[in-house]
Design a protein around this nucleic acid. Structure first.
Lengths: 214, 214
DNA sequence: AACCTTGTTGATCATATGATCAATTACCGC
DNA sequence: GCGGTAATTGATCATATGATCAACAAGGTT
């Protein structure tokens, strides 16, 4: 259904182990974003890169691990992208506003779906469970760092930045999960989340709603 | 691993269709709470009630539907239990405090896991997707009603009770999802959620933290 | 150009799932 | 007690999954 080569023809192009491993990782990532983590299957990945299932199996200790690694890669990339997006922001206030806007945007729905898959699958996939914990901690550290900087400049006020970081992430994850089922009220909720952040960080009302009317 | 009869012996006790259907529903519910929605399998349910897989299949249009119905039953029961729990509370403030306490408690983790399974599975199970939407709306209606009552008595202040209801549920769902992976910081977060609720509903600080130090 | 390392395949297992259907037999009504 | 309805079974399909391994062949090395 796209520009991927199917049909493994005999004697497929030989590639270096590193290149092939990378190819598999990319395919798994694309599949996960399109069809969710459960879509990562031996035959699915193989078909996408025009190769035998046996080859994919050959490059992976187990599918569980490939799923865990793929989740990890997707979320790590997500954090990286968001960090890059916040880089141009001058000051913690602008950065926080951008963070909330970005994380609550509809374009993140595929990543949100991956998170939901991971929370669900994590109970039966130990490797994935570990990775989920690691990535949650990474996100929390990222947000907590932003908050700490804001407290440092005196712009934010918070007793427990660690907890507030967890709170903000919880709000975002919860509302994004809801958004997968009921897209409707995203608009008014975004504004509400900004308000919550303002309240919990001792900001003046409206500070986080610069130009966006949402 | 419990007091359920396995081993379907030839000529198992005959039951009325209604009784058998109920038995299947109960078994599915127990399995879901113990092993998650994906644990609801033809053979799994059959084994639990000491019956052939064919019989379970005979009573259900499809497993997808049984999963959807089971989810619906679990969540409906959840709402009912919580509603009952809030009944003795005098006034919306006490009710809201009890609601937050109850919903963020560690004893809800199995139900939270079911929610996560449902959000994940819903993408591939249309019947379940519908049921997830319905139950989310039911929860939102329940909370919104509580908020509206509070606004009515003048105890709460909120422009958009519908949106605040979604917000509260989003916070709770998100933090509960986190709690499945990282149980640790539940304590401080519960207090933080109370604070958020106080802020967003125009309540005095600490009003929602009656006796519980959290 | 021959060789040999090793990336790749084809065939095959083992398992788990949902689903169907004729045959059986338990139980209710007469 | 007998008979017939229908709840239940046993056997069987079809499919999807992960995994393994001997055999093949592509491509760099000599």
């Amino acid at each position: 259904m796209s520009t991927v080569q199917h049909e493994p023809r005999p004697g497929a192009r030989r590639k270096s182990p590193a290149a092939r491993a990378a190819e598999i990782a990319v395919a798994a990532r694309e599949i996960a974003l399109a069809d969710g983590l459960p879509g990562i299957t031996l035959r699915g990945v193989a078909a996408r890169i025009g190769v035998t299932p046996a080859l994919v199996s050959h490059y992976q200790p187990s599918m569980e691990v490939l799923v865990a690694d793929t989740f990890s890669a997707i979320v790590a990339a997500e954090i990286g992208e968001v960090a890059e997006e916040l880089a141009p922001c001058i000051g913690p206030v602008a950065a926080l506003a951008a963070l909330i806007d970005s994380l609550l945007g509809p374009e993140r729905s595929s990543v949100t779906a991956v998170w939901l898959d991971a929370w669900s699958l994590g109970r039966r996939n130990p490797a994935l469970a570990v990775e989920v914990g690691v990535q949650m901690d990474a996100w929390q550290a990222f947000v907590a760092d932003l908050l700490r900087r804001g407290v440092g400049t005196g712009e934010f006020t918070a007793d427990d930045t660690e907890a507030v970081a967890w709170l903000l992430l919880g709000i975002i994850d919860g509302l994004n999960a809801h958004g997968i089922v009921r897209y409707g009220h995203a608009g008014s909720l975004r504004g509400l989340v900004r308000t919550v952040a303002e309240h919990e960080l001792g900001l003046a009302a409206g500070v986080l709603s610069h130009r966006d009317p949402g």
